[in-house]
């Protein structure tokens, strides 16, 4: 099971990174989402896989015993999903506003903050 998921994780990473290497910001954004899923799956798989038994106790248990899924990676990933979503929304809005202001989503043409050509700082004191 872990082996199959490892391959899947590799595919997620490949797709995500390929998209992020693009020069179009929208594709980079798509890449970020895929990349986030890849990382979550990576952590999930590294915590070992257990089918269909959630780490929830029944009413009469005082301790979680027996074979259940590993709760720790789940707790980490749950917050990670929410944080990635905030990050994604932020990037999306940034892209949206950039496009409105500059009129392009080509990263090569986005040179407002760092214009091309050498600009020497003042040489005095």
């Amino acid at each position: 099971m872990e082996a199959v998921l490892s391959i899947l994780v590799g595919l997620f990473f490949t797709a995500g990174i390929y998209l992020m290497l693009s020069k179009a910001i929208v594709r980079i954004l798509l890449g970020v989402v895929v990349f986030g899923n890849a990382v979550n799956l990576l952590i999930f798989t590294a915590g070992r896989i257990m089918r269909e038994v959630p780490p929830v106790m029944s009413l009469d248990m005082t301790q979680l015993t027996g074979d259940t899924a590993n709760p720790l990676p789940q707790a980490l990933i749950l917050t990670a999903i929410v944080i990635s979503f905030s990050f994604f929304s932020f990037l999306l809005v940034l892209t949206f506003r950039t496009y409105q202001e500059v009129g392009t989503d080509d990263t090569v043409k986005l040179r407002v903050a760092e214009p091309e050509g050498k600009i020497l700082p003042p040489m005095g004191y």
Partner: peptide, 14 residues
């Protein structure tokens, strides 16, 4: 680059 990274992550996880 993407394939190298993806393969690397996959192997690492494996």
């Amino acid at each position: 680059i993407a394939i190298l990274c993806g393969l690397g992550f996959g192997l690492l996880l494996l």
